[in-house]
Write a protein that binds this DNA or RNA. Structure first.
Lengths: 245, 245
DNA sequence: GCTACTCATATTGTACACATTTTTGATCAG
DNA sequence: CTGATCAAAAATGTGTACAATATGAGTAGC
């Protein structure tokens, strides 16, 4: 039978910083939800591992009650799995699910682009996207080393896609995208570790998508965004295959 | 744990029936999650209304602890909204979100059909869909009154779509569809209250989709399923507009 | 009459005690 | 050694007390 050993985070002063910081969540529960969600998305807890309520509460220096509250919320979000009388475990995602997440995300982000084109961009949104694209142009034309360019692109990429999601003004689309990015490795900052030529090509697609949205061409914007995400998917699959060898 | 039978014996009025049923959840929390989720999807709690923990626990005859557990889970699922120190409120969905839910669902169900066609149907799935479609044929060719035909079609419709979702073998797709159906009026049994001609037309589309899946034609299956859901969306919008007058 | 303040009440957040279930692992028969 | 048995230990589920916060009624001051 599978080992049900409880997973403990190597805790060297892991207890959360709670004093002197700005904009802290109002309650312990809310803080724990954010903290644990980030830890899970970062993969700091091994998939399938069991989260022991007592250990967590001791490590994080709160009682079991807010820990349970956070775990229940995260289970509702689908990041954790819950079995009655057996507790919470970190949800495992198969490789097939990663690929499916990209297929789904291509459709959801395509819809976001369609809605953005239909509804038009606010001045604020336009400024945000302009800035993101300019940052990308600058980063890719500069002579920084590859890693710096990748980092800059990653940040720009998130800003661009985030702005489109916001411009779509659809909570539903945002939620679906979030669900797709829940699968580890599917989040935006993990998908850019490819070759520079690919990054340039994808950046050009960003420009094209922006252009279609500005021109109020919903069908074209949706088509381009789908293509864009699918191309990221393909790159990622190639990347995994390359690493596999 | 405190005696569970205390609750069962004491349950006199508002408290839900729990004895004699098969497959009831192992814990109070799990039962509450199911009970409250169904109540919310049925619209038994007004959108925006506040859910008082003490009142709920009294009505349902449990302590606050499992009530809070259930509310936290449902908030994670997005059916409730939570504000620190102010409690849980029933999430409100705007009319635009209902329409968006259909757009998103068309894409998600289309993906389900694509995956089903790619992966092929199990004997079990084929039997299920065969039965559903035959039921539909029989109901629509019979001479029952309109309401009976609608009811039969509603049940068949759910069976058909459910079978396709299952055949897609993708948790992600299932989750996205669930999110789309979370919007009140978007669930399958609410969308069939249209004219008989429309029902017949949609039933024909079911046959066509099934045919494409059986023939292992992913693109065609996806295209047909999208058209199908969009046609339901349009009927629903017309229906709402008609009622609006 | 209106605003701002005060305090009583209601509601939510947290800790903890205890009941129940699961898991562990020591023991023993074969 | 293998597998079953069963009691101890550990972990989760639930109830409840109390703390922190929000709410609302009433009142003083203008």
């Amino acid at each position: 039978m599978q080992k049900l050993d409880t997973f403990e985070l190597a805790s060297g002063g892991l207890a959360p910083e709670r004093s002197g910081e700005a904009m802290l969540p109002a309650t312990r529960s809310a803080w724990l939800v954010e903290h644990l969600r980030q830890a899970l998305l970062d993969g700091r807890y091994p998939p399938g591992s069991r989260l022991n309520e007592v250990h967590l509460s001791q490590e994080l220096d709160v009682s079991r009650t807010p820990v349970r509250a956070a775990l229940q919320t995260l289970a509702g979000e689908g990041l954790l799995h819950h079995q009655p009388n057996k507790g919470f475990t970190v949800r495992e995602f198969l490789l097939t699910e990663l690929v499916e997440a990209y297929d789904m995300r291509a459709l959801a982000e395509g819809l976001a682009a369609r809605f953005s084109a239909e509804r038009g961009l606010s001045d604020d949104a336009r400024r945000t996207i302009d800035a993101a694209l300019s940052d990308g142009d600058r980063a890719l034309s500069g002579s920084d080393d590859l890693e710096a360019q990748r980092a800059a692109y990653a940040q720009m990429n998130q800003a661009f896609h985030g702005a489109v999601h916001t411009a779509a003004k659809s909570d539903l689309v945002r939620e679906v995208v979030r669900i797709c990015q829940r699968v580890p490795q599917a989040s935006a900052h993990n998908v850019v570790a490819f070759d520079l030529a690919g990054i340039r090509r994808r950046h050009d697609m960003h420009h094209a998508i922006y252009h279609a949205i500005l021109a109020r061409e919903p069908q074209e914007a949706e088509r381009l965004m789908r293509e864009h995400v699918v191309s990221v998917k393909i790159s990622m699959i190639e990347n995994i295959a390359r690493r596999g060898r």
